[in-house]
Simulated assay, not measured.
Amino acid sequence: MDLKTLKTFQMVVKYGSFVRTAREMNYVQSTVTMQIQKLELDLGVQLIERGHGKEFRLTEAGRLFHDQSLQIVKRMEQLQSSLSNLQMGETGHVRIGVTEPTGSYRLPGLLKAFLSDYPNIRISLEFANTPTLSERVLKGELDFSLCSAPDLGEDLYFEPLFQEEFVVVLPESHPLARKEVLSLEDIVEFRLLLTSATCPYRRKLEMLIQEIGHAPLDTMEVGSMTALKFFVESGLGIALVPRIAVEPVSTGTAIRAMHGSRIHMNVGLLCKTTSYPLQLASQKLYQFLKLRLGEGATS
């Protein structure tokens, strides 16, 4: 018993005619007859009781089978459609990881646009730092991540998309606010608000500060990148943060550019080497983010 045979049986009942069914399904009449006979043989019951000429009527078993088979055919057609969409990347479940501030400031609008084109794709997001996301990608717990460049090994593939520009956010009354552009030597003279020790942004900042041979005299650790600007607003110190996270500028604070581009951070898409290129729905989302972030991440 297959879907094609079930559909033939339903058409025979619908039109009350083997001839009409054959015409509608582009079969010869003998094909319709053989399909119905095979269906009855497979089920071990008579479904159609034939009368004189072309007349027939459903047996009690035929009526029961017809009623039940309507839902079977409907569900099988839905399943076929779902499997077809899955193969085309039109449906599925994509698990992605993301770091801040990209997750909060860039992704919402992008995912809204993506899901309007692919409403049958389900997306799950995990927010974490790059080392955690890298581990989750390697374990197969995430399909891919949007993060800073990890400590790459042979099992990870990273495709940079844009550079996150960092600026200094500080109180308007702060002495450094009189300068238009700041250097690392400037900011280490004041209390510096830092993210957690595992944050790649902080690790890069500490590496650059070590290069100038002058560690900050006063620091305060704040675990959240997005929280830093609020601590600055309270006058607790200054912070080096992505520009996108502090614009528009909050009342009572100012932002200043930094000398050079070494302080900026590359952000891109990360997946397992063996998984690239990605398949199905994951590839649809990957390519969408690659196009949109690569073209206009800083706009």
Rank of each mutant, 00 (worst) to 15 (best):
M11R: 15
G44T: 14
R20F: 01
V12Y: 14
V28H: 12
R50D: 00
Q46T: 11
Q46V: 08
T21H: 12
E40P: 08
E24Y: 12
A22L: 03
E49F: 14
G44P: 10
R20A: 00
T33N: 11
E60Y: 08
T31C: 00
E60T: 10
E49Y: 15
E49N: 14
Q35A: 05
F18N: 05
E40A: 01
K38E: 02
V12N: 13
E55A: 03
K54Q: 08
A22P: 11
M11K: 15
G44Y: 15
G53R: 08
T59L: 02
R57D: 12
Q37A: 02
L41K: 14
V19A: 00
D42V: 09
N26Q: 07
H52Y: 14
V45T: 13
L41I: 09
K38A: 03
I48Q: 06
L47I: 02
K14W: 09
T33A: 06
T59W: 12
H52T: 10
V45Y: 11
L39R: 11
L43F: 13
L41P: 01
H52R: 13
V19G: 00
R57H: 15
D42M: 09
R57Y: 15
K54V: 08
K38Q: 07
L41R: 15
K54T: 10
L41C: 00
Q29L: 01
R50H: 14
L47W: 11
G51I: 03
V12H: 14
V28S: 05
L58K: 08
V28T: 09
M25F: 04
G53D: 02
T59F: 05
V32C: 02
T21I: 09
E49S: 09
V12A: 05
L39I: 07
M11I: 15
V19N: 06
T31L: 00
E55S: 09
K54M: 08
G53E: 00
V32M: 03
G51S: 00
G53N: 03
E49G: 07
I36E: 01
E55F: 12
V28Y: 13
G44S: 08
G16L: 10
A22C: 03
H52F: 11
E55P: 02
L39A: 01
F56Q: 09
T31S: 00
L41F: 06
M34V: 12
L43Q: 07
L41H: 12
R23Y: 11
G44Q: 12
K38L: 01
R57E: 15
Y15T: 15
K38D: 00
E49C: 07
F56K: 09
F56A: 00
V13Y: 07
R20T: 10
Q35Y: 15
G51M: 03
E55R: 15
V32S: 04
T31W: 05
S30H: 05
D42F: 07
Y15W: 13
F56H: 08
S17R: 10
I36A: 06
E60F: 10
S17H: 11
G44W: 14
E60L: 04
K38V: 04
L39K: 14
S30R: 11
R20E: 06
D42P: 05
R57S: 12
N26L: 02
I48G: 02
G53L: 01
K14H: 12
V28W: 14
S17C: 00
Y15H: 11
K14P: 06
Q29I: 06
R20L: 00
